[in-house]
C-alpha cells in the first residue's frame, strides 16, 4: 500500500519526528511504499544539515537522510514554512540573496502542492505533530 507521511514538528523538541521515522521504517519493512514524507510547520527543521546532536543521542537529520538514500524516499520540505524558519537550499539562498544554505542530503524544498499531491496519490496519509 502507498503511504504519505506529514511531519509537523522539528527534531528533538517533540517526539513527532521520531514517531514518523519509526512508522516510515516499519512500513517499508512490511513492504509498503512511501509516496512522500512532507515536512511542514517546524517540521522543516528536520532538514537542516547544521544540527550537531550529542554523540550519545540519535542523529535525527542524518537518520532521515540515510533512510531516504536506502529507500529512495522523497523527503519534501515546505518552501513557505522553510523560508520563515531559515531553511534554504542553494537555489533559494541565491534567489533570496542569503549567504548560506543549510539543507541536508536527501531533502528537497518545494511547494505545499506536494502535500496535497501526497494526499491524492497515497492510499493513506498519516500525520505526526503536536
Amino acid at each position: 500500500m502507498k503511504f504519505g507521511i506529514l511531519v509537523n514538528e522539528g527534531p528533538y523538541q517533540h517526539q513527532a519526528s521520531d514517531s514518523a521515522y519509526q512508522f516510515t521504517k516499519a512500513a517499508l519493512e512490511k513492504g509498503h511504499e512511501i509516496f512522500r514524507v512532507f515536512f511542514y510547520h517546524d517540521g522543516v527543521n528536520n532538514a537542516t544539515r547544521l544540527t550537531v546532536p550529542p554523540r550519545d543521542d540519535r542523529n535525527i537529520v542524518d537518520r532521515w537522510s540515510e533512510l531516504a538514500k536506502e529507500h529512495n524516499l522523497d523527503l519534501v520540505v515546505c518552501i513557505a514554512a522553510a523560508q520563515r524558519r531559515g531553511l534554504l537550499d542553494e537555489n533559494e539562498a541565491k534567489r533570496q540573496g542569503k549567504d548560506a544554505n543549510n539543507i541536508a542530503e536527501g531533502f528537497r524544498i518545494s511547494g505545499l502542492g506536494q502535500l496535497i499531491e501526497a494526499g491524492i496519490q497515497s492510499e493513506r496519509l498519516v500525520v505526526f505533530g503536536d
Partner: peptide, 12 residues
C-alpha cells in the same frame, strides 16, 4: 499555516 494549505489545496 493550516489556512495556507487550504488555499494551495483549493487549486487541486
Amino acid at each position: 499555516e493550516s489556512l495556507e494549505v487550504v488555499l494551495i489545496g483549493a487549486a487541486f
